[in-house]
Design a protein around this nucleic acid. Structure first.
Lengths: 243, 243
DNA sequence: CGCTGAATTGACTACCCTCAACATGAGTGG
DNA sequence: CCACTCATGTTGAGGGTAGTCAATTCAGCG
């Protein structure tokens, strides 16, 4: 359900079948005609600019979205108006699953940098899922994965100190880069310090201090948004709270 | 998918159709024969005793479970062995959705008190969902609701102080009692202080202190596990961080 | 060149944790 | 019936991690 990274929208080769993200986004074996069905309902949209909304909380739910390039954050707002980032989403990952419950989105999704997405109208996906059992199964799995990932975030916020939270986030991004065959030991953070702090339940000052401390201890190097993991074992130990 | 609270297992009237929890557990209109199909796959199990496991992390996933009576907690364990309670589940609510992602449960679920559950084998539910579109839709919604609820927990843990966390938990339990037509202003907590502390990312001492403080300020009264909400408006304000 | 926003660093503060003592109540056995 | 233990919960004193407030640096940009 994700096409190649080529942004040229009249490229006839754009399809889920030949998308190089499809092992992440669509890791099930579908027959060729089934993939065609899927391609028919998937819509490629014009790229989002940094800061632009993909959808807003309380918008009527119609679609889920697969991130094709770039990165986005999803934000949950309390009645009191406090914003909490509930997740960062990288290429191959799907957002919008919060919208089904009450037919309106509960989160807002905002581009962290220029990002392109594939839109998947959900009622058409549901119809197709009734005909393709493996597709139904895949979407149940996809939602379950979202649940288990969020439970890990809950554990992170409930049990860990600042260093552990930062280390876990870095390892998470590293691993997700690895799935896309990108470098795992060196990468650019797509989000600001403010976003990291918000997501991890910390202040930007604390995030900054932890980065400098990890750098002083030769665990990582930090240069603005550029991160290099120097000592992955130390970083893993810190992420597990064994520091 | 939930029967009456009667525990007598040879009661012929036990069925999803006449279960008095079905407006919570199964809030969709199914035809009579569709409910029969569902009844045929739902299995009523013998009650769990307090402390007993419904399933354990890493068990092979076969079923999801609807809580019929009592209460359970679901626990997520880190590699380092730290346990985090990710949720409390009351009658009418469904657990086990974490198991689909990798075909093993990632959490353990333990009874907080004597509890009975309805077991729903998932492969049979999937088959049935292919034939009953509204059932497929309902389960997508159910999983989405789990996702949005967990996002609220993430916000709670990321942004709130101890009083706000406790107040939110009390209001959540109160509201869920209301859905079952139980008293909302007075109820018994099914879980220990240790469980509350673990879930909210606090220590038992802090939980205890907040309870006494809320009592001194005439917001609630506390007597062991018996809670009465005295001033719901204050409690709501505290839950929203306006204290 | 100054302005603005993001990030870093320092000094101080506060909230919650840690450690410890004590209270309460259920269950057990003499 | 009482003494005992054990689990659970409450309360107090002190300390530490992260928050708050503030100053500074730096990059991007009109």
């Amino acid at each position: 359900m994700i096409t190649s990274d080529a942004l040229c929208s009249h490229d006839k080769r754009m399809s889920c079948g030949n998308c190089r993200l499809n092992t992440i986004c669509l890791p099930i074996s579908l027959h060729i005609d089934e993939i065609d069905h899927l391609d028919n309902i998937v819509q490629r949209r014009k790229p989002l600019q940094k800061g632009e909304y993909l959808y807003r909380a309380n918008d009527v739910f119609h679609s889920v979205y697969a991130i094709r390039s770039g990165a986005v954050k999803s934000i949950n707002m309390s009645e009191a108006g406090e914003e909490q980032i509930t997740g960062f989403h990288l290429p191959g990952e799907v957002v919008g699953l919060d919208g089904l419950a009450n037919n309106i989105y509960t989160n807002s999704v905002i581009a962290l940098e220029t990002a392109s997405v594939c839109e998947i109208p959900f009622n058409r996906l549901e119809d197709l899922s009734l005909k393709i059992p493996s597709l139904q199964h895949y979407f149940f799995q996809l939602m379950s994965r979202e649940i288990t990932q969020e439970q890990q975030v809950i554990r992170l916020l409930g049990k860990s100190d600042a260093e552990t939270r930062i280390a876990s986030l870095l390892l998470s991004i590293s691993a997700r880069n690895g799935r896309r065959n990108l470098a795992t030991h060196q990468f650019l953070l797509p989000m600001s310090r403010t976003d990291i702090a918000n997501f991890l339940g910390l202040t930007i000052e604390t995030v900054s201090r932890v980065f400098t401390r990890l750098q002083k201890n030769n665990v990582i190097t930090v240069n603005k948004k550029e991160i290099a993991i120097v000592d992955i074992n130390s970083l893993r130990n810190i992420a597990q709270g064994q520091n």
